[in-house]
């Protein structure tokens, strides 16, 4: 079942003590719920210190997607994992701002490298 879910939904990769999850356009409600399940599960199982949410393959956003990103970040933080959103495209950033979703509580980075730097604490913002 979880095998099947992993194929269908977003993959979660482990990178040292960090987890990387990539979000795509085609995630439906079911896949989102499933992703939240898996991500929280993985964080507590691996005692992850950081979570990187990669949205670089997200071309279109709506309030739903914005809320989902915010929710994933909050859940991770409650589980004591620092969360960084990376790869927000210009068009996506503009849409989110127009929708009034500035994700103020979430840390952001331009790319994976920067996110890893932030999580390593070498460059705290």
């Amino acid at each position: 079942m979880s095998r099947h879910g992993a194929d269908r939904g977003a993959p979660i990769l482990a990178l040292g003590r960090n987890l990387v999850v990539s979000i795509r356009d085609d995630l439906d409600d079911q896949a989102i719920v499933e992703l939240q399940d898996r991500l929280t599960e993985e964080i507590s199982r691996r005692r992850a210190e950081g979570v990187i949410i990669d949205v670089s393959r997200l071309d279109v956003v709506d309030t739903f997607a914005g809320r989902m990103i915010g929710a994933l970040a909050k859940m991770s933080r409650i589980l004591d994992a620092r969360t960084v959103v990376v790869g927000v495209r210009p068009a996506v950033a503009m849409t989110l701002v127009e929708l009034g979703m500035t994700l103020g509580e979430v840390e952001t980075a331009l790319n994976l490298d920067r996110a890893l730097e932030i999580l390593a604490g070498s460059k705290s913002r």
Binding site: V85, V86, V88, A93, T102, L110, R114, A115
Partner: peptide, 13 residues
């Protein structure tokens, strides 16, 4: 303010 918010979302300041 909007521009600043969008810039922050992209991971810059």
């Amino acid at each position: 303010i909007k521009t600043a918010a969008a810039i922050r979302l992209m991971g810059a300041e």
